[in-house]
Amino acid sequence: MRVNQISVFLENKSGRLSDVTRTLADNNINIRALSIADTIDYGLLRLIVNDPDLATQVLTDNGFTVARTEVLAVEIPDRPGGLAGVIDILAAKNLNIEYMYAFVGRSGDHAIVVFRIEPVEDAITVLQEGGMRILRGEELHSL
């Protein structure tokens, strides 16, 4: 039900992002979704990849600081109001979204949005009760 996301600390200097993507490419790791949270001096690159364990290992070996977090990948009807519907469900139960970003691929005729919500157990319950489908890691990676 939960998907492993890896976060990489990057200083804001040229070439660092390409160092990450190159490292992943060299190890045949596919990036499925990403987002960057940044400040003036540094950023956090959040990634969903097909092999989080290998990605963590090769990035750490190459000197990057990596953190792992569990996020939820939710199927969203790909039409106007699709995202609003999901967010309404969470808001009704006072669950805060820390951040979210879109997944590159699609699941049938659904879009996929990655959510970071605390506490994650409550979010799973609320979303499922609201009729939302949450993708498992393997499902996500096989898309």
């Binding site: 600390f9 540094y42 600081t65």
Partner: peptide, 15 residues
């Protein structure tokens, strides 16, 4: 230098 202990998925923790 940041350590693995400091880094998470959220910028506000670093801040």
């Amino acid at each position: 230098e940041v350590s693995p202990k400091m880094v998470s998925d959220e910028v506000r923790k670093l801040e």
